[in-house]
Design a protein around this nucleic acid. Structure first.
Lengths: 248, 248
DNA sequence: TCGGGTATCGATGTATACAATCAGAATGCA
DNA sequence: TGCATTCTGATTGTATACATCGATACCCGA
């Protein structure tokens, strides 16, 4: 009840959407659990109308599901669903990389990506990676992927990638769990960095096919890692584990 | 004002969504034109709340765009946007075909697809294709693509394909225009049928890579045809032309 | 005791009233 | 005459009241 009066600049609807997404993604609600409007009103502190708008948006976003009889529930994902989502994202990013390479980008356009790579390099150099460094990595990695998508200069594709990434990039609290499930995180991060570097190189040299291939490979690796992590902890709640994708 | 009391079974929100989508897609509103809530209320006959819900859904669907200062406008698409969307859809469908092939589908699962092919064959056999036959073709073709997506058995992918197809398959009135822009429609339809047949064959024989490749090729052909059609009629309104994709 | 029907309660879907904000026009001043 | 400012009108954003629908629990009869 503290930050109730904060930030009049954003609409109530947006605030409600952010609050509810945070709640869902952080695991505050279980998969399949019903979320009542009244509950949402209490959580967000805004009235039913904007809450309703937020719920509709979250449904379209893929985090919620409509209950035929009325209302919304947190969408439940199977392990297969998540693995497919990773491959899906990889396929879309592959297309983005191809577009970027074939349409020709100036080296000035690639600068932000390279800078991103350098920053990640600095983090990954540490021997046992700290939780904080891993956290930074997740953010930087997400930025790299966003920048790559934008390099395609294709609004429809960017939009679609954004959609496909909604879940993977959502969880800020889940990654700790994912990391703890994966002691050899650093090794994986290093391989991921290699992929990133290859993509940038391929785009710079206008090799569309190679750029596409490496992004798909990148995703396949992430899927493999997630599969391994899940095998170790069979009852791991899947939603937080999604964050692992970001380490792929 | 006649069908105001019809069909109590579907919610006002859904009815409003359908009515507004029809309005947009049929070209009743120009690209970039603002759509006021009051206007939407008059068109749909329901009150502002469900209209608002419908507008939010249509925005998430990609047909509308939020105006920063408030309200919605019909999203404007460039020619490039549309061509990219076609390739995007082809890429996703390629993945779906690969999944279907690699996960192994029974020949019973392929039955509906084959039946769909046969029905299309019947239509395409006519020498000059009538408007009615072309109309049926568009519907059948859409069904084929939906069936193919479902064959992947991957809800996230199906959802994404559905999204990517929202525009292409939307326009029932635009295809006439598209067809008139393309006298050699029959030839294109025949090639498309060939592609369809090859995909089904590849899936049946578990050739994932081949299945994927042909769907991408299928989309590339559609893009090429659209590009040609647009070159002939430079001032063609783009939204109706989207329907041409269905003929690809 | 068990099954069916009904009644009550709660939640959602819808409508509308109110408030805040934005755009545009008109007016005043330089 | 041109520009800035203010005022007004309309439109959106929000809140809340009302209606409707579904679920659950209870009661009655067999």
């Amino acid at each position: 009840m503290a930050e109730r009066e904060a930030d009049r600049s954003v609409s109530q609807t947006v605030r409600a959407q952010l609050a509810l997404r945070e709640l869902i993604v952080s695991g505050g609600l279980r998969s399949g659990e019903r979320i009542s409007e009244l509950q949402a009103v209490e959580v967000t502190g805004v009235s039913r109308t904007p809450v309703r708008m937020a719920l509709v948006r979250l449904e379209e976003e893929g985090l919620l599901e409509v209950i035929p009889s009325g209302g919304f529930m947190v969408k439940a994902f199977s392990e297969r669903d998540i693995l497919d989502s990773i491959e899906l994202r990889g396929t879309l990013e592959g297309l983005a990389a191809r577009f970027a390479a074939e349409r020709g980008v100036s080296s000035r356009d690639l600068e932000p990506l390279k800078q991103c790579l350098n920053e990640i390099d600095g983090l990954v150099r540490q021997e046992p990676i700290s939780i904080e460094a891993f956290s930074s990595y997740v953010a930087l990695n997400a930025r790299f992927h966003v920048l790559l998508a934008e390099l395609s200069r294709s609004p429809p594709l960017i939009r679609q990638i954004d959609r496909a990434s909604a879940l993977p990039f959502a969880s800020p609290s889940g990654f700790v769990m994912a990391q703890s499930a994966l002691p050899e995180a650093r090794q994986i991060l290093l391989i991921g960095q290699d992929h990133h570097r290859v993509v940038v190189d391929a785009i710079e040299n206008r090799e569309g096919t190679r750029a596409e291939a490496i992004m798909r490979e990148h995703a396949r690796l992430a899927a493999r890692n997630l599969r391994l992590a899940l095998r170790n902890r069979t009852h791991l709640d899947l939603l937080p584990a999604l964050a692992l994708i970001t380490a792929g």
